[in-house]
Structures are given as structure tokens and as C-alpha cells.
């Protein structure tokens, strides 16, 4: 049986190279005031990617985030541990769970379909993207909104710098990511084909004949955060659209790696 092909139809992203988005098209001032910065960005990139793909409500939503809603988590932790005297706010707790964003987008788009959030260090986004790919290949969904979000707080960036761990390796500049992309079984107007996503440990066999974008390449362009590889996938998609077969090698660590293969659309 021919395996169903999966395409990237559209994406929208916010990296250190972009300013804060203008959310007025998607949020009332009242809604915007109640949201963390990351939630506002999430609404912006999700709704923009869906609009570009001409989709109102996706069949499924998958999200990757290594650290989740840090701002709300910290707000609750600070009240809890007496760092400040502010009362414990139920809203901070409610919006501290990692799946807050995926469910908020589901509510906004009226999506009752498959909804999953992955939180696995540097391969959170690829985990979500692989799940989305399988949803389409199995025929459970015709299109999937796949997202990646990381936010940074001043306190957490100081903590990460203390550990010298993970997002701080090789490049001291820490950053944030917001990416939403529409995966679809429909090749019409697709940016590229999402040929495969592999998760594995070190030593995943590397195929030849691809333009390779590594995690370090992404870090040098966008700064470092757990989900920076999602920005590399966007770059790979643009390269594939120009006819270059692209491989995104997310060499996060010896124990978590991911390979994403993107091909020019319509079998060029």
C-alpha cells in the first residue's frame, strides 16, 4: 500500500528576529490583558498559520514545549515559597500546565479532535510533529496544527546559566520560540512535503544527498531554547520549497535526537 504523503501547507513563526505580534486581529483588548506573552504569541501564530492554509478548525492539534508556561509556573511558585507576598492565584495554576496552549487553541477554533502536548527537552516539537504525521498517515486527520512554544523569564534564564545545561550550550544567548504549522494530506499550494520524522538516540543513521540544517545552525540564527529546532524546520521548509531536499538534524544531546526530512512539493 502506498503510504499517504504529508505536506506542510503553511507556517507562522516568531523568533528573536521578530518583534511582538499585533494580536488585535485575533484578540479583544480584554482577552489580551488576561493572557501571558506566550499565550498571545500562540494565538497569533496558530491563527495566522490556519488562515494561510485556509482552515478554520483543524482536525487535530499537537504541541511541543520543553518548559511550558514558565511565567505562570513561576508566579505560582513564588507565592508558594514566599518569595513574594502575593496570594496563590488559581489562574496561574490553571495556566501553568503544559497543555494550556493546545487546549486554548482548541477552544478558540472549536476543535474537538485529537489534542496532545509533548514536553521532552529538545525534541518536544519533533515528538509532536511525529504524532501529527501519524494522525494524517493513519487517516485519523486530514490536517493537523503542529506547534512549538518556549518562553523565557529573567529568573529562569539566570538559573539555566547557573547550570550551564541544555539551552545554554555552545551559545550563551537564550531565546524564545513560537511556531505553528499546518500539516496536511492535501498537496495543493503546499510549501513542501514532510517526508519523515525520526526520534532516536545518538547514532541515528544519516541519509545522504540533503542540505543539512543542524540544531547548532538554528541556535546561531535564533538563539537557544528547547524548541529552536522548530524554527530550523521552518527554514528547511523554505529551502525545500526552492527545490532543495532538506534534513533537519536536531542533535540535542546524546540521548535525544531527531531527524526531519523535507522534500520539494510534488516530487520534484
Amino acid at each position: 500500500m502506498m503510504e499517504k504523503k504529508v505536506y506542510i501547507k503553511s507556517f507562522s513563526r516568531i523568533s528573536v528576529l521578530d518583534g511582538e505580534p499585533d494580536c488585535r486581529a485575533f484578540l479583544t483588548p480584554m482577552e489580551a490583558r488576561r493572557m501571558s506573552r506566550m499565550m498571545k504569541r500562540a494565538v497569533f501564530v496558530s491563527m495566522t498559520a490556519l488562515q494561510k492554509a485556509g482552515i478554520g478548525s483543524p482536525d487535530a492539534i499537537v504541541t511541543g514545549t520543553g518548559l511550558g508556561c514558565l511565567e505562570n509556573t513561576e508566579a505560582f511558585l513564588k507565592s508558594l515559597t514566599g518569595v513574594n507576598d502575593l496570594p496563590l492565584r488559581p489562574t496561574s495554576f490553571m495556566q501553568s500546565t503544559h497543555n494550556t496552549i493546545s487546549s486554548m487553541i482548541a477552544i478558540r477554533t472549536g476543535c474537538h479532535g485529537y489534542n496532545a502536548t509533548y514536553s521532552h527537552l529538545g525534541t518536544s516539537f519533533e515528538s509532536a510533529m511525529l504524532d501529527g504525521l501519524l494522525q494524517i498517515r493513519s487517516g485519523s486527520a486530514a490536517n493537523v496544527l503542529a506547534c512549538a512554544f518556549e518562553e523565557l523569564t529573567p529568573d529562569f534564564s539566570r538559573m539555566l546559566e547557573k547550570t550551564g545545561f541544555g539551552p545554554t550550550v555552545k551559545d550563551g544567548r537564550l531565546s524564545e520560540t513560537a511556531v505553528a504549522m499546518v500539516l496536511s494530506s492535501d498537496p495543493q499550494n503546499a510549501i513542501c512535503e514532510l517526508s519523515s520524522v525520526k526520534l532516536g538516540r545518538s547514532g541515528i543513521p544519516m541519509p545522504e544527498g540533503f542540505r543539512i540544517i543542524t540544531r547548532d545552525d538554528a541556535i546561531s540564527s535564533y538563539g537557544n531554547n528547547f524548541s529552536v529546532s522548530a524554527l530550523a524546520v521552518c527554514d528547511g521548509a523554505l529551502a525545500a520549497a526552492e527545490g532543495e531536499k532538506s534534513l533537519i538534524y536536531n542533535n540535542f544531546s546524546g540521548y535525544d535526537q531527531a531527524l526531519t526530512i523535507l522534500l520539494p512539493p510534488c516530487g520534484n
Binding site: 489534542n115 547550570t163 532516536g200 540521548y255 535525544d256
Partner: peptide
Amino acid sequence: IKVHDCGSTTELIAGAVGGFSMATTLST
């Protein structure tokens, strides 16, 4: 600080048991 996130707990389990060709973490 390094093991604050969800994925690190999964990796600690993977390390204690040994093996595994891939690992990831759902947080819903």
C-alpha cells in the same frame, strides 16, 4: 534545576532501566 522539566523525569527512568531506542513525554 536540570531535572525540573517533565522530559528529564522520563530520561531519569530510561537511564535507570537502561536501553530504549527513543523516549518522549506526554504532558496533557
